[in-house]
Design a protein around this nucleic acid. Sequence first.
DNA 1: AAAAACAACGCAAACGTTTGATTAATTTTG
DNA 2: CAAAATTAATCAAACGTTTGCGTTGTTTTT
Lengths: 338, 338
Amino acid sequence: MQSKPTTIKEIARILNISPSSVSRGLHDHPSIGAVTREKIKQLAKSLNYEPNNAAILFQKGKTYTIGVILPELSEHFFSIAISAIEDEAIKKNYTVIFAQSHDNYEQEVKLVEKMKNQRVDGLLVSISKDTSKFDHFEKLNSFNIPVVFFDRIPPFKNVHYVACSLESATIKAVNYLLKKGHRSIGMINGPTTLYASEERKDGYMQAITFNRLKFDPSLVVNCDLTEEGTIDAANQFLNHKRKPTAIVAFNDYVALFLIKYFKKLNVINDFDVVSYANLPIISYLDNSPVASVEQYPYLQGQKAANILLDLIHSPNSENQAYYNTIVESDLIVNEVKE
Amino acid sequence: MQSKPTTIKEIARILNISPSSVSRGLHDHPSIGAVTREKIKQLAKSLNYEPNNAAILFQKGKTYTIGVILPELSEHFFSIAISAIEDEAIKKNYTVIFAQSHDNYEQEVKLVEKMKNQRVDGLLVSISKDTSKFDHFEKLNSFNIPVVFFDRIPPFKNVHYVACSLESATIKAVNYLLKKGHRSIGMINGPTTLYASEERKDGYMQAITFNRLKFDPSLVVNCDLTEEGTIDAANQFLNHKRKPTAIVAFNDYVALFLIKYFKKLNVINDFDVVSYANLPIISYLDNSPVASVEQYPYLQGQKAANILLDLIHSPNSENQAYYNTIVESDLIVNEVKE
DNA sequence: AAAAACAACGCAAACGTTTGATTAATTTTG
DNA sequence: CAAAATTAATCAAACGTTTGCGTTGTTTTT
């Protein structure tokens, strides 16, 4: 049995009043008498009336939808972040639609376009690895669609963003290793194209020089973040004239490859590894990193979502002020397991 | 500068033709002359015309949107599955909206309602842990919104679903352990309310009896899947008169708790653990499960999405036939690490 | 040369809801 | 008691697009 959803019109017809009165009645508009209002509400309830969202959205030109574009939903960090975003959105009665760029610039451009066509009220974006142009986002300005970047953000300030300061996190990490007595610390960094690589390197250098040590560029090696790349980097350290005793890995995946390789070579005990958290259970490893930089994906998602909702609700004045929110990351030292 | 998006009307006005012609021109309708068509397309392009989706959706009563309701997006299994769903949806030009039940029945009911109001063209659902009534889904029938369940499915056949046969997977797992020489095998099962628990138990029993062994009910203990519950279960095994030498854990989380506990007690080497895969890197653990039941979340998501899209496109005839798709799960034996 | 077919386009309604302007009925005020 | 104010409801337009049907004017068929 094919039931057509009840409409305002139908309620109006049955009650012999106009659709506008029904609409106003349902919205507690003052110009509708109490008796009529109640009759309307009762009938609406008994007929299981549900507003036709598509019609409302169309009428209002608002969709109560926020779009999320991120590189890979299956990455733990992003799955947590978007989970937070959805939690926040639903509180304010917004719906979340999302799409994955799969770290592809062209795909990202297409998705931004698609989101715009879908008339999202705002956009949350974590940019793809090979995004270096940002016109596709700037276009959204003229359509008054606010954008908030999170985690993977563009390298300039005149946008809204939420991110961790990887620089300060790296300082903490290196300081920790220095305090543990390490004097030669290696870093497996990402590709130079990544802003995140720059931040890590800066943090590394600052911590080293602040502690009046000499910065040795050959101890910071760039890596494509694959298992092979990691092994190459590891070999450079193993053959280094000042063989490091501790290593800062770009992320948990790199750390995993590294630990695996070191275990194979049976040199795992010669190194303390510090990493940036991606994998929820890495601390369960037997030779897990001694410390981990926690980037609080849930918090980042939450803040980004709230900022976006703020922007959506704020009068579309010239927002000269950009939200540049930094979520402090913490160095989580792995307790020794009993 | 606030640009209002270009509309068909505007194009029509400029070209001095009717909106309907513009619409038809843009859609390559045969009754529009080639010259006019090209003029329309050119102007549309130069004005950056983008169809107003909200209007189209409203007009057509279709949203080209599929809804996904799942318990926890941050769970690895689901993040992979929804990632697959999005990948399939975007191929067919559908958009995905999603929401999390957080394993709460009431929330799930609300979300189904919300999705219906959003007029999704179809729904993909993995049901919450404490869902035992299914009226909220049946209601969708009368609105002609097809539903495909995946992974966590209702315990009856007259719905569309995609799932793994945990029963056959469990048989494989227990057989593997039996072949390895184990004669007393414990199982940490989930709550009895879960269909998945029943399946595991059935598989366990079948494998045991097929191998002409006696089924000992006290070797299958139910557990609330928390760390404490797991420890309780472990203790039951440790004190068992026929102390098992192998254990089938309900999932990787349980396996993790179990291994942690066994390591603490220094009895880890007395047990072979088999688990059901949730955690991507569990095999990197030093005392990782000897084998893992892989449930292919990507494949499940993919199949579920395609079935749903099929149903959406199929004439809304009486679909007497229900898709009951079983994705064969495999027992992945962890290679010995060099 | 009339009838039929066709090509190219316009007209207008429809989808469901909201909202500013308007009207009619009732009540309050000086 | 007439004028003003209040209350309760209606009217009609609007949002952008699609689509069945009707209307031209031109070409083809008999």
